[in-house]
Write a protein that binds this DNA or RNA. Structure first.
Lengths: 155, 155
DNA sequence: CCCTATTATCTCGCTCAGCAAGATACTCGT
DNA sequence: ACGAGTATCTTGCTGAGCGAGATAATAGGG
């Protein structure tokens, strides 16, 4: 009898704990990337948000970036200052509305990120290739469902 | 043509991005828990580590906790001070080796955590119940594989 | 066309989490 | 019982992020 006092948890709990463990491990992985490049966790999150926006073809302004990261305006300015000084990002005043500052990632930062996260991403894609469409649908469904459940209650 | 300049990425990338999105969303979820209770992200991570240890039936000392969270000894002391003052944790000098300080979570913190994370966990278990054993094996395999890949290069 | 309300970013002063270095307290092998 | 080793705590400091408010640009009603 492994844990005699516990009320025999559902077998699904194993996967729930596994998902949590993965998020912890990915967080530590990002932290290593931050350390190696003299950055802070928030800087990494910012770069990820910026690259997501770029891939989606959307402009990322200082304000939107701060909102995504949960920073106020002062913190956002400091963050962009830091990233700009490190040469990972540049400020571009918007032509149309010159109050807005569009943040663009430098090619340098993109390459840095790919060099570090590339192997992990490749390994993940490899793992997925071993599964059939029904299994992939399950993975998609589970992850999407958890994301939705976690996103609930965001004001 | 959605993104004419991109080199047509593997369809598996969708799931990789989805996993990253889930980790971001879970991070924000934890941050909300921290905010609502006047805590900091590190405090939440500490409570999670403590409850994991408790479930595994292991003692968690100040030193081990600091190592898990990547804090040095000063930061660890400050962290435990904070949690103790908030009544979420108690210090217990070990009988055998009185240099060691075992950290135990107060029942109050466990209940707080279950009240907040319970619904999300329950929803996740529900999602999983919709899949057959072959699909669950795929989810386990993928998450476990990513965890292992991310854990590589941890000194 | 000006004047006001609104929006977007930045500046200033501060708080507090976490770090480096070292002090303190306890244990164990010889 | 003493010196090396281990676990935690103390001190002083750095810097990320916050609150409040300044600055700059736009949009709309008179």
């Amino acid at each position: 009898m492994p844990t005699p006092s516990s009320p025999d948890p559902a077998p699904e709990m194993e996967i729930v704990h596994l998902l949590r463990a993965v998020t912890v491990e990915l967080g530590l992985h990002s932290a290593r990337f931050a350390n190696q490049n003299g950055m802070h966790p928030t800087d990494v999150r910012a770069l990820i948000a910026l690259m997501d926006a770029r891939r989606a073809g959307e402009e990322m302004t200082a304000g939107r970036l701060g909102a995504v990261l949960g920073l106020n305006s002062a913190g956002t300015t400091a963050l962009v200052d830091r990233l700009e000084q490190a040469g990972q990002v540049r400020r571009v005043r918007a032509e149309r509305d010159r109050r807005r500052v569009v943040i663009e990632v430098e090619e340098r930062a993109v390459e840095l990120g790919q060099a570090f996260f590339g192997p992990l991403i490749e390994r993940s894609v490899e793992l997925l290739r071993a599964y059939d469409e029904r299994q992939l649908a399950a993975i998609r469904g589970f992850l999407g469902g958890v994301r939705e459940a976690a996103a609930e209650g965001r004001e």
